[in-house]
């Protein structure tokens, strides 16, 4: 019985299939969450295109592009970890997982540098901070930055969640059976890649409006 995590299954292969399916359903659900926020952004973008384009120019494309590359790399290392897990090369798996979470931390560090710069320049319309914006239509630029902070911080929260889960998984590594290790790596990997996909859309939508 201990070969499966859930009493409902009597066979680890079926359990792994169920886990994978559950992750995909969860990802579908998450896609709806981000979809709704993207919809809000799209409606606003259609209404205030020029203001949004102007405001978008105040974001740092260099840092954004760098961070995108970091996330792509982390997805790659995560996929590599899964590959090692399939071949039961556990030590290599752990190293790849550690690399993945380190890249996740790197993304967050760069992101917080960006936040810091934007707050210092007075472009964060949060908590009553003064909004100083040199450009046309500051009202809707403020709207843009509201959406920018909402979307990116929601994404960052998901990333923090992913890093925490990888950490927890490594902490429990010794107690898990090989089957459990494999389907945990698989489940976390799916989540990680999904968070990456979200950023693949967020980056052009926020940073690259008609440079």
């Amino acid at each position: 019985m201990s070969r499966t995590e859930s009493v409902a299954f009597d066979n680890p292969r079926r359990e792994r299939r169920a886990d994978t399916f559950a992750m995909w359903v969860f990802i579908g659900s998450e896609a709806m969450l981000f979809g709704a926020i993207f919809l809000v952004f799209l409606v606003a973008h259609l209404d205030f295109g020029p203001a949004f384009a102007a405001a978008s120019k105040h974001l740092s494309v260099a840092l954004g592009a760098f961070n995108t590359a970091v996330l792509i790399t982390s997805s790659f290392t995560m996929a590599v970890a899964h590959m090692f897990a399939l071949h039961r090369r556990w030590r290599a798996t752990v190293w790849a997982l550690l690399a993945t979470s380190a890249l996740g931390v790197c993304f967050l560090v760069v992101k917080s540098m960006e936040y810091g710069k934007e707050i210092a320049e007075g472009m964060a319309p949060l908590l009553g901070l003064p909004f100083r914006y040199e450009g046309p239509d500051p009202v809707h630029a403020e709207f843009f930055f509201s959406l920018y902070f909402t979307m990116t911080s929601l994404h960052a929260l998901h990333l923090i969640g992913g890093i925490a889960v990888i950490g927890g998984m490594i902490a429990l590594w010794r107690t898990a059976s090989p089957a459990n290790r494999l389907h945990r790596v698989e489940a976390v990997g799916l989540y990680w890649h999904f968070v990456d996909v979200v950023w693949m859309f967020m980056f052009p939508v926020l940073y690259l409006i008609n440079r």
Partner: peptide
Amino acid sequence: IAMLFMHLTGTLPRLAVAA
């Protein structure tokens, strides 16, 4: 990412994505 990293194969995962 979906095809190469996430191995989007099998009916059930595709069903979830399609939905």
